[in-house]
Nucleic acid binder design. Structure first.
Lengths: 341, 341
DNA sequence: CTGAAAGCGCTAACAC
DNA sequence: GTGTTAGCGCTTTCAG
């Protein structure tokens, strides 16, 4: 075993020990095919002997490649993003890239600061969630010609490198189903719409379906809550305390929906008997909730995996088959009931 | 707005525009206090005008600091790790560090490959989960004097930079409670013990409590399953199909426990009436399960936050108050019943 | 307080 | 094939 304190060996050390030039040593590691087997072997042997490990900073500086990409998520512990990041990282690893992650907690300012810090540190590409970002964010990325892909959404943008689905359409289909089940007293619980085209698109999709059915959302039945169990609870308190109560609450995310269900349980409001509740995301929890959640299945993992592959292709200048819009099918379970009248 | 194609401005460009030397420009960004306000202002103004952004690779190469740390988790989408990573990232961001993440999917080989790739890419420090790692991992890290902190566990190590709790003790306390509730027919469902001192310590803690009570684990009631809902389901199938059945299944994680509960529901085995089930982790889901899970509360977020602070202190050579063992209290809910005999 | 200059460790022409 | 030689963009002595 090597002594701990030894300064990290450099490629020059390797070259010296192997009795070859710096250039050959470098080539041995990057384009081994271009070396005579004998010299290659000597370099490799020296590498082994010295326990040589490349210096990424030097490599990045000289080659202008960091072999690193960044992903910025709203938050890292939301299961949908955790799943997506997991898939993302797996694919990047296969492609030989490292993953830097950050989160902005839904604060636009934090996002641009984060992008700046990351561009500064150096990455070859970037993955962002959603299509709605501040000018500061786009300016920073474009100014350096950094390849980037937008995820989760196809709404409100014409940028070609998007990996996602139509939130509008998914919400539209869910609302259609709700209406088909006979509901007319419909409430909506979403998150903050500002800087988030996904919630806007979902609300718009819902509205579109209602409009077609000649229905309308009452302003007092549209509530905006943070994306948390508590947010869902709060929504129920607000929505189910008035004189007239909705027969269904369409929630913008499963987390909200599950919080809402739990609050109903506490208040002895039966779901879906007294009020139906729908979600969006289809996190694992959705199938374990009681009642099981009727929701929209968002392919988080696939988004991550595809985004990774697409970004790497962009970075490496490979041919890009355009990404197809992903499916986000309705998952009909138990939390949405037909209205009996 | 600057033209998109412009090559990234360098510090030399800034210096030239500001009419100062490269050195002064550099100092303006790193030690602004040592500059005459007037020159500082000129540099800053040039930076602004050029839209200058530091080149991290060059900075890292020259300063031998990457301002980046890596965290390697078993998997990124397990909620306990996602929570921990979230807290970790938040604190690192405050400290001015970026976070590189990777996962090894519980494969020892993948872990060492990952560590190697990360050391190569360059980080100032590293966070690992658990104390049990292959020699390859420790050699790699120590050879370069890379600061590192171990998390989640205090068991089976004497390394001073650990942020975690005693899994042995927590499991011991849970088993004590189970015994106190009158159970004697006790089954255990854990994950793979190899390369994972947390599951070993939990099993050992459980055994210790049983031994004190003159009880013993029957080999056929100790099952090893992957950490997934399906693993928990499988455990129930295995454990509850024999002639004699346990009255309680102590699960090594909440995910396992919730899978087990769900399988019981499907098979009409009442929990906790027919069989009690306990978990470990206290993920959000634990309180939403039906019945609510009796479990051990693992402070995932605090582990992340403390690990980040500790690692940064290590990197920056600051004084290190030793980290205290964290609390992992029992959370008594509904899934564990007293045995009525 | 500021300028000059020597690298940091590696890649990528370019010759041989 | 392999060696030589410029840099990559920044930090950091060392003078002044």
């Amino acid at each position: 075993m090597k002594t701990a304190k030894a300064a990290r060996a450099t490629l020059a050390d390797v070259a010296r020990l192997a009795g070859v030039s710096l250039g050959s040593a470098s080539r041995a590691l990057s384009v081994p095919g271009e070396l005579k087997p004998a010299t290659l072997a000597r370099v490799l042997q020296a590498v082994e002997q010295l326990g040589y490990v490349r210096n990424g900073a030097a490599q990045a500086l000289a080659s202008r490649k960091t072999l690193t990409v960044a992903a910025i998520f709203p938050t890292l512990n939301n299961p949908i993003y955790a799943d997506s990041m997991h898939a993302l990282q797996q694919v990047l690893w296969q492609c030989g890239y490292q993953l830097v992650v950050a989160s902005h907690e839904y604060k636009p300012d934090r996002e641009s600061e984060t992008v700046r810090a990351i561009v500064e540190r150096g990455v070859d590409g970037m993955i962002l969630v959603g299509t709605d970002h501040t000018d500061a964010v786009f300016d920073l990325i474009r100014q350096y010609g950094l390849p980037y892909v937008l995820t989760w959404s196809l709404d409100e943008t014409r940028y070609p490198h998007c990996v996602g689905f139509s939130n509008h359409d998914a919400a539209y289909r869910m609302a259609k189903l709700v209406i088909e089940y006979g509901h007319t007293k419909i409430a909506l619980c979403g998150g903050a719409a500002s800087g988030n085209e996904r919630v806007r698109a979902r609300i718009a999709g819902t509205r579109a379906a209602l409009r077609e059915a000649g229905l309308e959302l009452r302003p007092e039945w549209v509530v905006e809550q943070p994306f948390s169990f508590e947010g869902g609870r709060q929504a129920v308190r607000q929505l189910m305390s008035g004189a007239e109560k909705p027969t269904v609450i369409i929630c913008g995310t499963d987390v909200l929906a599950i919080g809402a269900i739990d609050e109903c349980r506490i208040r002895k409001i039966r779901v879906p008997k007294d009020v139906s509740i729908t979600g969006f995301d289809d996190i694992e929890l959705a199938a374990l909730a009681n009642p099981k959640l009727t929701t929209v299945r968002v392919p988080s993992m696939e988004i991550g995996a595809r985004a990774a592959r697409h970004l790497v292709a962009l970075i490496e200048g490979r041919e890009l088959h355009a990404e197809p819009a992903l499916d986000a099918p309705l998952v009909v379970r138990d939390s949405l009931h037909k209205v009996v009248s």
